[in-house]
Amino acid sequence: MSTQDQARLSNAENMIAAIAPMLRGLGHVAVGSQSPIPGSAALLAQALSGGTMRVSILGSREQNPFTDGGRELFDCAGQGRIDAFFLSGGQIDGAANINLVGTGDIETYPRHQQRFPGSFGSAYLYFVVPRVILFREEHTPRTLVRAVDFISAPGTSAPEVYRPGGPHALVTSRCVFSFDKPTARFTLLSVHPGVTVDEVRACTGFDYAVPPVVPQTPAPDASTLALLRGDIAQMVAKTYPAFALKTWGNSIAQ
């Protein structure tokens, strides 16, 4: 492998590199089950935090501090003890509404065109965790839609609704959007290496703001990349073996 190839990031690594800096300075980052990309980003951010960040990963044996059953994560979040969490969606729309239930007219519920697994904890955590980072590797008009068919959790709420939390950004395999709460709208923050602004427009079903100059998503420096592909990959493999194998190959698998 040439030096150039080694420096090239996979889609997953681009997303990890985009998410990790968003966690800088936070005290407690929690990761849901089946979220290997945010999980990797959180472990990387923790390694770079100099021991100040706690990372809790559901489904992990070692990175899981909870001893009071499935409910503890939610009770912990409800008290404001979790600073950041990650949500995805079968559909995500331009107002940061997410759909984890299914597609098709809601009047036909529950006989969806396409059924997704279900809302998990989204309808609660989206409200109470201050910094929720949305992630979706597939960036197409099918996943990033004008309006979701079913709102598992809304992007914004009326002023009288208790809501200390909400969306902070949306990270895909092509780009990073930031979310502006007052206008309930995304702004294109950066594009990953090799991706153009026009390509993002063509692949996105919702409208969003575009600044005059859109930078490239900052690549991790050589030592950070080495950390990710070394120690962090080994840690990730313990909880997400299939993902680690796909992303970093056989040398990482336990």
Binding site: A123, Y124, F127, I151, A153
Partner: peptide
């Protein structure tokens, strides 16, 4: 009682 949920279509179904 439970926080969250308001504005979710879960309340419709």
């Amino acid at each position: 009682p439970m926080r969250g949920l308001i504005g979710s279509d879960l309340l419709r179904v």
